[in-house]
Amino acid sequence: MLVNVKGLVKRYDKLVALDYLDLQVEEGEIFGLLGPNGSGKTTAINCILSLIRYDKGSIEIFGKPMKPNAYDIKRNIGIIMQNVAVFEELTVYENIYYFCSLYIKDKIEVKRLTREAIEFVSMEDYADFYPKKLSGGLLRRLNIACGIAHKPKLIILDEPTVAVDPQSRNKILEGIKKLNAEGATIIYTSHYMEEVEQICSKIAIIDKGRVIAQGTKEELKAMISLGEKITMELYELPEKNINELKEFPGIYSVEYHENLLEIKSAKGRNNLIHILDYMAKNNIIFGKVYTELPTLNDVFLEITGKELRD
């Protein structure tokens, strides 16, 4: 176990930010911490890094208790904050060099690692640029380079793609996968379920400071009853037909509004053929038809009763 968080409680006056939070991160994983804004993701990260005090619980990293002065643990952690944390007065190269030199004593090694980090984030052409001259996406890449230059074993990324253009986002996500392939364990927090689904090998869904579900994305989706979501474009659908569709075996939700029919069915039921057959027999004209497998948002919705984006 690389990171073991047990019963973590953090209160801000009357607000309970972390409510007996438990997290276990294995070596080599890309561990996704998924939850809406204000669910406690960043607070959990700050506690794990010993940046803030917590009221109860224990945190172990690399098998040792994490404390503010646990320098041997911190030496192997890389942190990429939600907001860009660099010095405006230093160039791209100098920023990476500076933060790397906080971890590595050998100057030659720091220089080598700095160059590698610049290559990793594809910023060779911007090495002498000051941060204020960089675009938002490039700034994010610099932020990442500053956090990973010292080749940490554990990298914590706290919503690194917020307000980033799609191209830079893809680069960042590819970079994370590459870091993981090179041996780093990743903790990745986000409220973008697509990103988490795309890169994480294990996911913890967090809400109101508690882990409400944990596992691989397949395991999480298996936890809910929804198996398939069928959507059809219809110009008209009488109430009688809606009620008849509801009687189909395995279908537990039929909703029709704004010319869209949404049918949710349980796992293991291939209802599409039966529905198309019903439409044909009843001369119901329909347009586009598409089916979707459940997403993490559906998981979140089924467990909490609200959308991830709420």
């Binding site: 890094l49 911190k74 942190i79 660099v86 956090g147």
Partner: peptide
């Protein structure tokens, strides 16, 4: 945020 990054470092 710089302070947070520095505080997380082993210095």
């Amino acid at each position: 945020m710089r302070g947070a990054r520095i505080s997380a470092s082993p210095v």
